[in-house]
Amino acid sequence: MTSGVDLGRPQAQAVGSDEDVVRVRQLVRTVAVAVKLSLVDQTKVVTAASELARNTLVYGGGGTVEVAVVDNGRRTGLRIVFVDSGPGIADVDLALTDGYTTGGGLGLGLSGARRLVDEFDIQTTPGQGTRVTITKWSR
């Protein structure tokens, strides 16, 4: 790797500003290229990461993003975890509905991100925070 990113261990990026969302995109892009995702899959996972990192910033009040290479024996991929200690999500099903928003956006962030990845998990506790985990496998 020429980028200097050590893929042997998870890479963490704090999310506290707009520019950090850009850094998350760049980190995810680097790892997605390294695990040889197709161009379309790279684009999908970077877009999903952009949506979720923005959620971490805007709704979660900031947090961290961790990107790791994963291997299930047959395929490699990347797993990204978005953690914040914000207000949490009261109704996850509602939050995952297309067009639902509390932030004045388009309401596509969470639901759209889920469609762009292979695995999507969300754990949230009102008053304590939210943890979203996504995985994209190479084909």
Partner: peptide
């Protein structure tokens, strides 16, 4: 617009 961007946009729902 790049092809991969177009594909992703549609899947995202935009």
């Amino acid at each position: 617009m790049r092809p991969a961007v177009a594909i992703t946009l549609v899947e995202l729902g935009l």
